[in-house]
């Protein structure tokens, strides 16, 4: 399950292209190289939308890393001016407790990006392991692992997370662990499918004849050859998890409150009067989530195109 926009038509076209120009892809290159087709990455810069999203993403990462130096105020410091509109002193105004919104927004970038990338790191590790083992060994192993995957996939992820978080208690660490440990099934499905396709190739058969061990074949020979779709799926998963974390924090079961996260900055807006009078409370964090997810999604689409997934 890649992003929503996997066009098979495009895939077919690129397959034809491969057939027409065999010299463009020497067979020998794919076997040994661990990071395949990285030279294609410069193609990313072809579209202006991609360049803009990359810039946006890097500046968000920059903001997150250097938040203590960039933020004009302490994000936890409660000031005297409560619910002040944006002005020269507070560019984005202050919240119900008089804390500076801009500072909270900058620190919030840390949480959103950290959850986005760390959770996908965990799910990618689990998903790739399950998918490789399931696809490579097949038979009973495959049957059992895929049924377990099906069970996880038939839960609405949010509900399962809500229950697990309410049992474990809400904290940033728990959110990352839960999102990471429950997000693997979709990736496992993808990796299994790709593994099944690659397993039939001659070079894997040769590896078997040479007596290489299963883990060695999976890690050194199959994984590098299925890295591209995994990279693309993982990118889309980052955007999904950033949105999910913000939704959880909005619902009050995500990052607990004194810590600023984009989602829980919006959580305070439950009453109509706050919503109408103090637009700066919800507009900035909402737009921040939107732009962040948008940038990552655009990047995923660009990667898909550049890597010809």
């Amino acid at each position: 399950m890649l992003g929503p926009f996997r066009s098979r038509e495009k895939k077919a076209a690129s397959r034809e292209e491969k057939a027409a120009i065999p010299a463009a892809r020497p067979l020998g290159r794919r076997v040994g190289s661990r990071l395949p087709h990285l030279p294609r990455l410069p193609r990313l810069a072809r579209r202006p939308a991609t360049v803009v999203s990359l810039l946006l993403l890097f500046s968000l990462i920059f903001c997150g890393i250097f938040a203590p130096w960039l933020a004009p105020y302490d994000p936890f410091l409660m000031g005297k001016t409560v619910l002040a509109p944006p002005d020269a002193g507070h560019w984005l105004g202050t919240d119900q407790l008089g804390r500076d919104n801009l500072s909270r927004l900058l620190y919030g970038a840390r949480i959103s990006l950290a959850t986005g990338f760390l959770t996908v790191g965990i799910s990618a590790f689990l998903g790739v392991t399950v998918g490789l083992v399931s696809g490579y060994y097949g038979k009973a192993v495959d049957l059992v692992l895929m049924r377990v995957t099906d069970i996880f996939l038939s839960f609405p992820l949010l509900m399962l997370i809500l229950v697990v978080v309410s049992v474990l208690g809400a904290s940033l660490r728990n959110i990352i662990l839960v999102l990471g440990c429950l997000g693997w099934p979709a990736l496992a499905r993808l990796v299994r499918g790709e593994t099944l396709a690659v397993k039939q190739r001659d070079y894997i058969q040769i590896c078997r004849v040479l007596g290489f061990s299963g883990p060695r074949i999976m890690l050194a020979h199959i994984l590098p050859n299925i890295a591209r779709p995994i990279l693309v799926a993982a990118t889309f998963a980052v955007a999904k998890n950033i949105l999910l974390e913000s939704a959880l924090s909005f619902l009050g079961v995500g990052v607990p409150l004194p810590a600023p996260s984009w989602g829980n900055m919006l959580a305070g807006i439950q009453s109509i009067s706050l919503l109408t009078k103090y637009y700066w409370l919800w507009l900035a964090p909402g737009l921040a989530i939107l732009l962040c997810a948008l940038a990552v999604n655009f990047l995923g689409e660009a990667l898909m195109e550049a890597l010809e997934v």
Binding site: P4, A49, A239, L243, S246, A247, F250, G263, L266, I269, I272, L275, T276, Y279, W282, G286, L287, I289, L290, A293, L294, N297, F298, E301
Partner: peptide
């Protein structure tokens, strides 16, 4: 394409709040 990407990158609760702000208030 740009509009579609924006739509599905929008967090549902933010869209909801914006809709309430625009079309209810």
């Amino acid at each position: 394409a740009g509009v579609c990407f924006t739509l599905f990158s929008t967090p549902g609760f933010f869209l909801g709040i914006s809709l309430i702000y625009l079309f209810a208030l």
